[in-house]
Computed example of a mutant assay.
Amino acid sequence: MARNVLGGELLPCSHEPLTGFYRDGCCNTGGQDMGLHLVCAVMTAEFLAFSKGAGNDLSTPREEWGFPGLKPGDRWCLCMERWVEAFQAGFAPKLVLEATNELALEWADMATMKEYAV
């Protein structure tokens, strides 16, 4: 069973929209998840614009992929590398620590994640 960064059971990030690499609502990962979708982030307009500018448009619906497009306030399991990139650029979205996979601690320290906790 996956654990969160606080040491407890990994809680769901979002079922509406349905998130997670495995589309199970949780920030679970495995060998096929090359992007490491580990952090449960709360979308902001600033982050969505940043991500689009970085080549990953998360706000435009993609019906062929069953992707509804994200809006501010939505929770989404983000790739760890994208969150770190956004953090370094000053656009990192807030995190739901109970739904953020403990493996995220390999990329960001707990103090930083607590600073960005909702």
Rank of each mutant, 00 (worst) to 15 (best):
M1V: 09
A2Y: 11
R3V: 09
V5G: 10
L6R: 14
G7L: 12
G8A: 04
G8C: 06
E9H: 03
C13A: 14
S14L: 01
S14Y: 00
E16T: 12
L18Y: 08
T19M: 03
G20V: 04
F21W: 13
F21S: 07
F21V: 10
Y22F: 12
R23H: 10
D24C: 06
D24Q: 07
G25Q: 13
C27Q: 12
C27P: 07
C27K: 06
C27R: 08
N28A: 13
Q32L: 13
D33M: 04
H37Y: 03
V39E: 00
C40Y: 08
V42N: 02
V42I: 15
V42A: 03
M43R: 01
E46I: 00
F47A: 01
L48V: 02
A49T: 15
F50H: 06
F50A: 00
S51G: 05
S51Q: 07
G53M: 07
G55K: 03
G55T: 14
N56Q: 10
P61S: 12
R62G: 03
R62T: 14
E63M: 05
E63G: 07
K71I: 07
G73N: 07
D74L: 02
D74V: 02
D74P: 00
R75N: 07
R75I: 08
C77E: 09
L78D: 07
L78N: 04
R82E: 09
R82S: 13
W83L: 03
E85I: 00
E85G: 04
Q88G: 12
Q88Y: 10
G90M: 03
G90Q: 11
F91Q: 06
A92S: 10
K94I: 00
K94H: 09
E98S: 13
E98A: 15
L103S: 13
E106I: 00
A108H: 01
D109G: 05
D109C: 06
M110L: 15
M110H: 11
A111K: 00
M113Q: 10
A117W: 07
A117V: 11
V118I: 09
